[in-house]
Simulated scan of single mutants.
Amino acid sequence: MKLIFLDRDGVINHDSEAYIKNVDEFELLPGSIEAIANLSQAGFNVIVCTNQSGVGRGLFSMEELNEIHIKLHQLVDQAGGSISAIIFCPHVPEDNCNCRKPKPGMILDICERFNVDNISNIMMIGDSIRDLEAISNAGGIPLLVKTGNGKKTLMKEKLPLGTLVFENLLEASEYIIEKEQRENAEE
């Protein structure tokens, strides 16, 4: 089972300190839809894994969040790709839940649902230390993109061991697809 986890805000779309509260505020980063389509066409199950504490804070509703995700699905479908699942944590940090990144709960849940036995080859692309720590805590491979908070993360944080760094989601996706093709050719 080939899974790839993607953070949403700052990786797929522009982020905002005021939160992305509705579909009108949801603006894609260049190349992100193409990257998702390419990954899914290469046989990856693309999983969007995102903290959405704005729901828990009452800044936007589940309906507004669903509208954003419906739009994302439609855009990827139109580009010839697919998203296998979008999972999110609606909790605020004070809830101390097991699903909020940097805890690996969402990743482990999806791996269980997709019957993944070996997480060590599973990658997550993110722009914050929370994303990198979540996949690292689950035993997978962290990939940092310099979009969103990525440049700040790169400058200020101690990255988990083995973190790979890319300019953006499209560059990261190209690396992943080429790596997969090389490994298949060697078999």
Rank of each mutant, 00 (worst) to 15 (best):
E25Q: 14
G139T: 08
P90C: 04
D109C: 15
I68A: 07
K146G: 05
I87M: 08
P160E: 03
I125S: 01
H73Q: 10
N184P: 13
D131Q: 11
K151L: 06
L164D: 05
H14I: 09
V11T: 09
N149K: 07
L170F: 09
H91F: 02
M155D: 07
D117Q: 07
L75M: 14
N98K: 06
G140L: 07
H14D: 15
K158D: 13
R8I: 02
R113H: 08
L3A: 15
T163A: 02
M124S: 06
I122Q: 10
E94H: 14
S16W: 06
I110N: 01
M124Q: 14
C99L: 13
M123G: 06
I20L: 15
D77Q: 05
G126M: 01
Q74H: 12
D9C: 02
G10W: 01
V165E: 14
T147G: 15
S32C: 01
S32H: 03
E183W: 10
I107L: 00
V55K: 05
L65V: 12
V116Y: 02
S128M: 03
K156P: 00
S128F: 02
K158S: 10
K101M: 03
H14N: 13
L154M: 11
I119A: 02
I36M: 12
N137G: 08
I86A: 03
C49N: 06
V23F: 07
N66V: 13
R8Y: 03
L39E: 01
H91K: 05
S136Y: 04
P102L: 15
N118Q: 10
D77N: 14
P30S: 08
C97E: 10
N13H: 13
E178G: 09
N38A: 11
C99K: 09
N38Y: 00
I125T: 02
L59E: 11
K101D: 07
K152Y: 11
N115P: 04
K152S: 11
L59D: 02
M106W: 01
T50D: 05
K179Y: 10
S32G: 01
I4Q: 12
M62W: 14
D15A: 11
G140N: 03
M62H: 08
I70R: 13
E25L: 02
K103Q: 13
K158V: 13
K21M: 08
C99A: 04
E34A: 02
V92G: 00
E178Q: 15
K156G: 14
T50L: 04
P90D: 11
G81C: 04
D127K: 04
A42D: 10
F26R: 10
T147C: 10
Y19Q: 07
Y175C: 12
V116F: 00
N51R: 14
G43N: 07
K158W: 09
I176C: 12
